[in-house]
């Protein structure tokens, strides 16, 4: 089975959950910006959560499927259609041979994720299939997809094959078959065009003056157009240190809010450098990173302080939700009669 890229869209890349274990060599993690959406899409087609899919940014591609394929589109709503018909997100879809997947206007978020049963079979580099654009590494030839690219898929899992059979049995003629099951709504991140992001303290929070810290939590910040997979560059009232300090470079992570000398905060994202030397004001909690990843350029974000305890609780709830989705789908594959799956907590 292969996918042919008819039109590439704005920035369509192969991503999995990231390249781990090599940050100590300065090799960045990369991976899906909205990891929750990719994990859900993978599970819906019977894949392991970490298989490679496509990250589709703002303007979607046109994709031709040479053979029938079990697919799922999750994340931001970029008006996906399959053979001209609306494709409902967060569901399993059996696309017949020769199908065309297209995208339209942005309805919500800004990044959609396409998973295909078997995953995208690009060669792993340092144990990951994620595209690292700047180093030309991983993904499909280390770059964003272009028209004419052909991507092979791996072998679907037994679970994926059973899901496909179930959909094939209920299918009408040559139309795409859409699952009755979907990701439970209480499991979905509360995507918003102007989200409030929960944060825990950064290592240098205390170095910022009182007024700056108050404004960071009190005001809205606009997502500047220079924002990308590396970092979300925000605009707002300048944030200042009590006294100018030169910091010594140290490790950073996904969601680190750092403030360069111009006072405009940057939230580090999937393609962040491994280390940084700007003061770290705050850290967006893991559970809220999908919300930021789906905030479009020009959108507004606010920040709220929570305890580490709450951050950890939210993290674990998200993981339990993913596990519920996984076991719900597994049950479905065995029983063949279920309709509702995967309630969050």
């Amino acid at each position: 089975m292969s996918l042919v890229i008819v039109k590439p869209g704005l920035l369509t890349t192969v991503q999995d959950l990231g390249r781990y274990g090599v940050q100590k060599f300065g090799v960045i993690v990369s991976g899906a910006m909205d990891a929750f959406a990719l994990r859900a899409a993978n599970l819906l087609v019977g894949n392991e959560e970490h298989e490679a899919g496509l990250e589709i940014t703002m303007i979607g591609p046109e994709i031709y499927f040479s053979d029938a394929a079990l697919i799922s589109v999750c994340g931001g709503d970029l008006s996906p259609t399959l053979n001209g018909r609306e494709l409902p997100p967060w569901r399993t879809v059996l696309a017949p041979e020769g199908s065309r997947l297209r995208f339209g206007p942005i309805k919500s978020g800004c990044r959609a994720y396409l998973a295909v049963a078997g995953g995208l079979d690009v060669p792993p580099r340092m144990d990951s299939r994620s595209t690292y654009l700047r180093a030309g590494l991983g993904g499909h030839e280390g770059r964003a997809l272009q028209a004419g690219d052909r991507l092979a898929t791996g072998v679907p899992s037994p679970g994926g094959r059973r899901l496909a059979e179930m959909l094939a049995n209920g299918a009408q003629g040559s139309d795409a078959a859409v699952s009755g099951w979907s990701v439970a709504s209480d499991l979905l991140p509360s995507y918003s065009a102007s989200p409030t992001l929960r944060t825990v303290a950064g290592q240098e929070s205390e170095l910022f003056d009182e007024d700056s810290r108050r404004r960071f939590f009190g005001e809205a910040f606009t997502v500047r157009t220079e924002s990308d997979r590396m970092g979300y560059r925000l605009a707002g009232g300048a944030l200042r240190l009590k006294a100018q300090r030169d910091l010594i470079s140290a490790a950073v992570t996904f969601g680190t809010v750092q403030v360069p000398p111009d006072g405009q905060p940057i939230v580090l994202m999937a393609d962040r450098q491994t280390t940084g030397g700007y003061p770290k004001l705050a850290q967006v909690i893991s559970a809220d990173l999908p919300l930021l990843a789906q905030t479009n350029l020009g959108g507004q974000v606010r920040f709220r302080a929570v305890s580490l305890q709450e951050a950890q609780e939210q993290y674990l709830n998200r993981e339990k939700g993913i596990r519920a989705l996984r076991s719900g789908l597994a049950q479905l594959q065995t029983n063949r009669n279920g309709k509702v799956i995967a309630h969050g907590e």
């Binding site: 781990y20 274990g21 090599v22 940050q23 100590k24 010594i248 470079s249 140290a250 490790a251 992570t253 491994t274 280390t275 950890q312 993290y315 674990l316 993981e319 339990k320």
Partner: peptide, 21 residues
């Protein structure tokens, strides 16, 4: 544990909280 990153003064140790628990 997922990985570690040494720097000038410190070592950052990344872990997966659910797996750790």
């Amino acid at each position: 544990m997922i990985e570690y990153v040494p720097s000038f003064l410190s070592v950052a140790v990344y872990y997966e909280p659910y797996a750790l628990l």
